[in-house]
Design a protein around this nucleic acid. Structure first.
Length: 265
DNA sequence: CTAAAATCCTGGTGGC
DNA sequence: TGCCACCAGGATTTTA
């Protein structure tokens, strides 16, 4: 469930211990998580220094000294640890990256959904992603343009990474609630005022998540506490914080969806 | 085109 | 207490 705010929090925490370090080796304990050539990963990564670490959507991007890019996607349960190489290994660690200072970057992922990519061109991994919703140069007008010639319901569209990058199930529900829009609405019926509310709601929800260092759910502890500030997500049967009506849970686009049937129209 | 379902996965949970 | 069915979901793939 790491979404944009959770990944951003992880990225910020890794810059201090990792930027400037050089990879010296890779050990793979779950090969399916490597989505590019394992041989190339093991031959090309060692010797490359980490120049900077950034985020694109829900991907972590390691910019490497030879021009390659290492991408990590945490998917549902992934987490990244920086630990001394003599520290006992958690049994859910799937990939181990050796560093030049006796530490290791360990990709821990109980459910094995996480992904690793090493590419010479970032577009091979993130080329089709939609725009980042938070930068100042992503304007309300840019947002409105995204809806042209779009159809279907709102919720699945918000989850579509080629539409907007970084929004997942939690922040899609929170954003729709803040914007007071029913997630079942077909998007070609949304009027300008609603798109404006949604634009600000998405940014508000994501920024609130970042402020609280993301949400810690599912026994996956990252230190964030945004889960204590959810307005609708996971609050099925509880009263709406706005009007007191009972928060409903439905399945939309195959995903659990939480909303207030009174506030959200 | 949209939409739904299946797929990958395992820890946690609820029922009996 | 133990067993088991079932659910969670990001992204992709398949089917309708």
């Amino acid at each position: 469930m790491p979404e944009l705010p959770e990944v951003e929090t992880v990225v910020r925490g890794l810059r201090g211990p990792l930027v400037g370090r050089t990879f010296t080796g890779v050990t793979i304990t779950w090969p399916n998580s490597i989505r590019t050539s394992i041989l190339e990963l093991q031959s090309r990564l060692p010797g490359q220094r980490i120049e900077k670490i950034t985020r694109r959507g829900k991907y972590l991007q390691f910019h490497l000294s030879e021009g390659d890019m290492l991408f990590l996607h945490l998917k549902m349960t992934g987490d990244l640890l920086v630990e001394p190489e003599d520290e006992p290994l958690n049994p859910h660690v799937r990939t181990i990256f050796d560093l030049d200072n006796g530490h290791q970057l360990r990709f821990k992922d109980p459910r094995k959904f996480g992904r690793v990519y090493l590419v010479d061109n970032a577009d091979k991994v993130v080329g089709k992603l939609g725009p980042e919703p938070l930068p100042d140069d992503f304007t309300l007008d840019d947002f409105k343009v995204l809806f042209r010639r779009r159809s279907g319901r709102l919720k699945p569209l918000l989850l579509n990474q080629e539409f907007i990058a970084g929004v997942g199930n939690i922040y899609a529900d929170e954003s729709s609630f803040i914007a007071k829009i029913d997630p079942r609405r077909t998007v070609d019926t949304l009027i300008d005022a609603e798109l404006e509310r949604l634009y600000y709601a998405i940014r508000q929800a994501l920024n609130a998540g970042i402020t609280h260092k993301g949400a810690s759910l599912d026994a996956v502890y990252r230190g964030g506490e945004f889960q204590n500030h959810f307005q609708v997500y996971g609050r099925t049967g509880e009263p709406c914080l706005n009007c007191g009506a009972t928060i409903q849970r439905i399945v939309l686009g195959g995903r659990s969806t939480h909303f207030c049937p009174v506030c959200q129209t």
